[in-house]
């Protein structure tokens, strides 16, 4: 039975929900609209809402000044590469934490999470120096590596919680059926955890895609991703707002589309096991 809620309350909450959603969406909407304005109109006061002169000039200018395709390719390589590499490391790690825990497992999990609470600048200098000495600066594999390390705690945590939901009996049955560890993981654990693994993959691709601090500090021309691409358009002087918006729009569009098409999967994965 659905709980009875008075119509007036329902209407009130619906309006409130829409208002909050619009408020949250407004910066993105503004970016989209600005991307199609001329630079003069973008800074006009009072501002215009819809572009008065609709123009695609900004997109052309953006591609001319800095290679969008190259940056997008780098973003794809780094975000998917780091997530897949992370999964390869995290699946066995989460298996052992979920199914063969020791007295210290909880501590290790907490410690991993605590590394996410530390501000990234805290390790900027050591990592920068290590990267310089190992010649990893401005390389795709260096960036993929750091992105894997940054997101590994989250990947392991997510997989750990999904694996916890899997009845250990089934893995034990596989062992009794003659499955060695590798087969137990590939034939039984992974197929059963597919929804969880998929949402871990999506979330971490998104996180890696949007990561700005390390991509901007560790890359310049060659390995720059889309976040570096956007930041190259924010200059302290000159007319840049419309171009910046166009660049931002180009940078977020792929991940926005990915998120849009996979939202069902994402929600299912994130609430996996919550309702049995």
């Amino acid at each position: 039975m659905a709980r009875r809620v008075p119509t007036s309350t329902r209407i009130g909450f619906t309006i409130l929900a829409w208002a909050i959603a619009l408020l949250l969406f407004s910066p993105i909407l503004w970016t989209i609209l600005t991307a199609f304005k001329t630079e003069a109109e973008a800074i006009a006061a009072p501002p215009t809402f819809l572009p008065e002169t609709f123009t695609l000039e900004n997109f052309g200018a953006v591609q001319d000044r800095s290679d969008y395709i190259k940056h997008a390719t780098n973003s794809i390589i780094v975000s998917f590469g780091s997530t897949l590499l992370g999964l390869v490391i995290a699946i066995p790690a989460a298996w052992s934490m979920a199914f063969a825990p020791t007295k210290r497992t909880k501590d290790i999990l907490m410690w991993m999470l605590s590394t996410k609470m530390m501000p990234a600048v805290g390790v900027l200098i050591p990592i920068y120096l290590i990267f310089r000495d190992l010649r990893l600066l401005d390389t795709l594999h260096g960036l993929t590596l750091i992105m894997t390390l940054i997101n590994l705690p989250i990947i392991i945590w997510m997989l750990y919680t999904y694996f916890k939901e899997i009845p250990v009996d089934i893995l034990e049955a596989a062992r009794m059926d003659g499955a060695e560890l590798w087969n137990e993981i590939t034939h039984v654990l992974v197929p059963m955890a597919i929804p969880g693994i998929a949402s871990t993959l999506l979330l971490n691709v998104i996180l890696a895609w949007n990561e700005a601090f390390w991509t901007i500090t560790l890359t310049s021309g060659r390995a720059g991703t889309l976040t570096a691409f956007i930041s190259s358009f924010s200059s302290p002087q000159g007319l840049f707002l419309a171009k910046l918006s166009a660049a931002s729009l180009l940078a977020i569009a792929p991940i926005l589309l990915l998120g849009w098409f996979s939202q069902k999967q994402l929600v299912r994965g994130l609430t996996f096991g919550a309702v049995k």
């Binding site: 009996d169 034990e172 049955a173 059963m192």
Partner: peptide, 9 residues
């Protein structure tokens, strides 16, 4: 097993 522990997939 008591729970049968069949592979659901």
């Amino acid at each position: 097993f008591q729970s049968y522990a069949l592979y659901p997939h």
